[in-house]
Amino acid sequence: MNPIKVMVVEDDAKIADLHRRFTEKVEGFEVVAIAQGLDDAKEMIELFEPDLILLDLYFPEGTSLDMLREIRTKGLETDVILITAAREMGPLKEALRGGVFDYIIKPVILERFKACLTKFREYYSRLHNSETLEQKDVDNMRHPSAAASTPPLSVDLPKGIDPLTLKKVKNVFKDPDTVSGLSAENVGELIGASRSTTRRYLEYLVSIGFIYPDLVYGTVGRPERRYFRN
């Protein structure tokens, strides 16, 4: 399969280059264009016909939601991942209604970014390599994380990862109360394991895209590394 063509639309040159480098760390993707404004982006979409656009939300000339709607109105075969510092629910709702594949909040974490592109690659492959559909195919395309985020409880697990302990750690993140994130110490207390052991399992779940880490800054003291369910 040919590389998935990606266009980065971001007005900050340094961030645009960062997203380019992040993208190139994931197998199967090729950045074909970088646009630093919405007008340039519209021209480049027609010129390069990208399969995927990494789209910032706010630009000096306005938001990119109008461009997202225009992409959908024209019926272009281009998917969009919105990358933004906006934390309000309004833009998220509009983006989801506009059919974005994913919504990533800045600052972008490499592990979360890789997990997102891996899911997109699976989705893209199924969409372009299947001639007929079964229900499971549709489910896998709509929810590609289901298979990727569920590691086999077998010898395929890395050394030092016990399947029963792994299951306990995963179950912790199924609780709605964990939406604000958990530290390794929090999870260790819940499953009865040491902080170092728990961190090993958490970092494994990060590597397969089941959870993602972020630094949470409190009112005092150093930032704390917390883990969130994808």
Rank of each mutant, 00 (worst) to 15 (best):
L110V: 11
S125V: 12
S125M: 02
R126W: 13
K136D: 12
P107N: 03
V108H: 11
S130N: 13
D137K: 01
D137H: 05
Q135L: 12
I105K: 12
D102F: 04
D139V: 05
K119L: 09
K119V: 00
L127R: 15
D137A: 07
L133S: 06
D102W: 08
V138T: 04
L110T: 03
H128A: 08
E122T: 03
K119W: 05
Q135I: 03
Q135V: 01
N140V: 01
H128E: 11
C116I: 13
S125A: 14
K119D: 09
K119G: 04
N140E: 05
T118R: 15
N129S: 15
F120V: 14
F113T: 06
E111R: 03
K136W: 00
N129H: 13
D137C: 01
I104G: 08
T118A: 02
R112D: 07
Q135M: 04
F120W: 14
L133N: 00
N140K: 05
E134K: 11
F113A: 09
F113Y: 15
Q135R: 04
I109Q: 14
P107G: 07
R121A: 10
I104N: 09
L117P: 00
A115E: 04
L127M: 15
V138I: 15
H128Y: 14
P107I: 01
T118E: 12
I109F: 07
V138L: 10
R126M: 14
C116S: 14
D139K: 06
K106V: 00
D137G: 05
K106W: 00
Y124F: 15
N140D: 06
E111L: 10
Q135P: 00
S130I: 07
C116K: 09
K136N: 06
R112T: 10
I109H: 08
T118S: 07
